[in-house]
Design a protein around this nucleic acid. Sequence first.
DNA 1: TATCGAATTATTTTGGAAATTTTCTTGACG
DNA 2: CGTCAAGAAAATTTCCAAAATAATTCGATA
Lengths: 249, 249
Amino acid sequence: MKRAVAVDIGSPEGGPRTVADAVHQRLRADLMGGRYSPGEALRLEPLMARYGCGISPLREALNRLAADRLVRAIGQRGFQAAPVTLAEMWDVMRLRQKLEGEALAGSIEGGDARWESEILAAFHRLAKAPPPGHDRADPDSWERSHRDFHAALISACSSEWLLHFIGILYGHTERYRRIRFERTMPRKLVRDVEAEHRALMDAVLARDKRRALKLLTDHLEKTANFIAREFAAAEAMEAAPRRRGRAAA
Amino acid sequence: MKRAVAVDIGSPEGGPRTVADAVHQRLRADLMGGRYSPGEALRLEPLMARYGCGISPLREALNRLAADRLVRAIGQRGFQAAPVTLAEMWDVMRLRQKLEGEALAGSIEGGDARWESEILAAFHRLAKAPPPGHDRADPDSWERSHRDFHAALISACSSEWLLHFIGILYGHTERYRRIRFERTMPRKLVRDVEAEHRALMDAVLARDKRRALKLLTDHLEKTANFIAREFAAAEAMEAAPRRRGRAAA
DNA sequence: TATCGAATTATTTTGGAAATTTTCTTGACG
DNA sequence: CGTCAAGAAAATTTCCAAAATAATTCGATA
């Protein structure tokens, strides 16, 4: 139950050491999982009920999340799930391309045998993981493996701060993806993604920096394009019924 | 008294809207100003007295600061001012070189006349500001002008997220500088820095991207070298007395 | 004299209630 | 019919005290 998600704050060793840590992790996972709509008001009483805690640790968790922009704090008007815009999605993804490219280059330069083996292991776990939304007991298992794979690729980068920022951006792109795709990722797409991951891993392990960077950039670009497409579709869905009448509640 | 410092969280318009916002700003300024030693325990009761508030807004402020790593939260053991290491200083500065270079390039490409004028204005305010530590009434005035100048240079960059990260890194380098330099910056150094700023501004306004990037990188590199030198000196001061006896409290 | 452990003290963390602010409702007025 | 203001309701923010956890003291023991 107390799954140890890698997080910057609080839990230096294993599980969360305080209620605020635990709520922070769960809330972060729920935000990233798209379980709150963008802009949705995060009212305190319902959240206290949902996460089974008092007001203080809840507010502390929300404040941490506000600092890395997964929630917005409005000052006397509470918190809301961060809004999403197509422009911001591109901003985040473009920056991820640059930063993750930088980190991957550094990783390829400095990585040792252990780093290589962990990439292989992470890839294997990802390949064996049930596709997104197919594990009812643990709905985020594929997502976790996916995150671990991308983290393994750049883990030999020497810049702690660069990895920190990449982690924040990753959380946001993950949220964009899951808000738009919900739980429906076509089988074919899963296979395509796996092929991209394999090609990327091969290039990295071959220490072919140029090719690896190209593959990583393309991989992220493709993801961004998928999200953008869904974005346009969702906006069309929302805009159209408004002209004819009232959208369903 | 309620000075409006530009901050990400909370105050969308003018001053802070909650006491948590106010405490967050003051605490952040004090951390960046080197008024807490690295690693120093930030106990709650003294801080409540110092900032004249209850426990809740104080903890919320500390949690926000923990998220961008100006304080460390240890879980059942409270908060402490972030530790400093030479390695991290270089990590932060190297990353700042890359990110701020990226932002400056984008700014030069996309900047308009208003952007140019604001650089000029910020440079002028910086040139007229009393040197660091010379304004007793407002000890941070030079620092604020300095921050504004650097912010103006890259303000035409289109990536909101890039500017956000740069702001965080800037806060850390500023802290490193002020922890080591205290309030003693030699007159000659002030003049050198001003000359660097002017050259940088000239290159930027001439839209000479290559030269501007070079000047910016060198400027930051020089700052890092100064800090590193002071770092070594401070470590020598700390290490030496320990062998002979006990250092003064 | 050093070490271990129980009791004491200090500190952090948490839940709840009071105070403050915002938001909604209602009714009067132009 | 729309606008505005005053009052009521709802929500956030804050203070505070109880609970939980960590640190310290002190004495007994080897």
